[in-house]
Amino acid sequence: MLELIDIKLERENRKVLKGISAKFEDRKIYAILGNNGVGKSTLAYIIMGLESYRDHEGEIIFDGKKINEKSVSERAKLGITLVWQEPARFEGLTVKEYLTLGSKKRFSEMELLEALRIVGLSGDYLYRFADNSLSGGERKRIELASILLLNPKFVVLDEPDSGIDIISTNMIEEVLRKLKNAGATLLVITHREEIAKMADEAYLMCDGEFLESGTVDKIIEFYKSHCDNCNHINKPEEGELSVRNKVR
């Protein structure tokens, strides 16, 4: 469904992405793990086609067609969407208005309430504004509810658990499950093991590259043994380099 071919990006003479290639198949969940600053969010923005990331090299193929030249809106219309790590806030826009944006379907109040229920929010939120009056966690939950209603084909979720209390992991799992059951492919960037474990396949990212891929258990094990105590972000030491060479 979505394929990345040799994606590279440079910023200020620094190679942020060094040639990412991967194939994401229909109705599967993929997890990307990796320390801060290794290029995970950058990859998410490139897939979504954000304006300041359009100067990358390599190809993005969606449903058999190259989409490099397509704008964010055009990609969204094809069914690709993104859940930001810290979603934007909007003055004067109610949660009800926000939830229904971009969907061709006219939602009943019941459907909106059900989406809010899944993310652990009461119906009162429909009439609140999606602005600074919401906490980071509340805003994130509303973002997840909006994605449920949007019914996309391919969703990149950049740390869906960030800003949300640890006891709400079940809620995020339910959202991912529902999206998958509705036919979506999910690419989940996460640091939380429970969330990653929902994936069918996982990637470990380091220094702008996929260092390893495979089953979630294998990647988590690899991450724990090599990255948990890593204090040289984006500069793999000899040990990691030799591991990487082994993977290749």
């Binding site: 304006e51 704008s71 964010v72 809106s73 969204a76 969407t81 934007a88 944006l101 971009g102």
Partner: peptide, 19 residues
Amino acid sequence: INSKQLETLMAKGLGEEEA
């Protein structure tokens, strides 16, 4: 306009003008 706000709405399928 704040590009993050704009691109958040565009990622839901709204055109740039509409967003």
